[in-house]
Amino acid sequence: MLREKYKDEIEQILSRYSVKRSALIPLLYVAQRDQGYVTEAAMKEIAQILTLTPPQVYETITFYTMLNLKPVGKFHIQVCKSLMCALVGSDSLIGWIKTKLGIAPGESTADGNFTLSAVECLAACGTAPMMQINDDYYERLTEEKVDRILADLRSTGTSQLKSGPFMWPEAPKAQV
């Protein structure tokens, strides 16, 4: 039960809003972090916390692309396919990942490690092509960079190639 496991966090979330339902998406994130997707039990529990009906929780989830009602891979690779990225090669990048992982967008690898999605604009058009893996952005991608990222993820679960606080073009380096 989320309520026991994340008691403080849930209380903190509820305290931010004067109308309880506002806490719905934040609570769904808590549930999704816990199980990787929003389970039916979680929907019911959250409905109860917020005095909503389960269908109200459900309808909200289905509107948003980031909330999952089914499990996704350990690493969810979302490559932007919108025009700005497509202009500089996102389609071939998707093709590259497809051959690397053997899965098409919408599919997961058999080991459950990777899920590949082609998604719409993620607000990184100046550093295209780009992708998001779980919480992190990876930008100015090349095939070689993608290979390193995938290798990093496989071996360490994370990659140093992910973006830091965003700025492009970069600021001039401090003079030593």
């Binding site: 607000a123 058009c125 965003f166």
Partner: peptide
Amino acid sequence: DESEPGTFKDRQLMER
């Protein structure tokens, strides 16, 4: 919400 394709300024203003 910065979701308009082609736009990525707010991200920079917020993160930097």
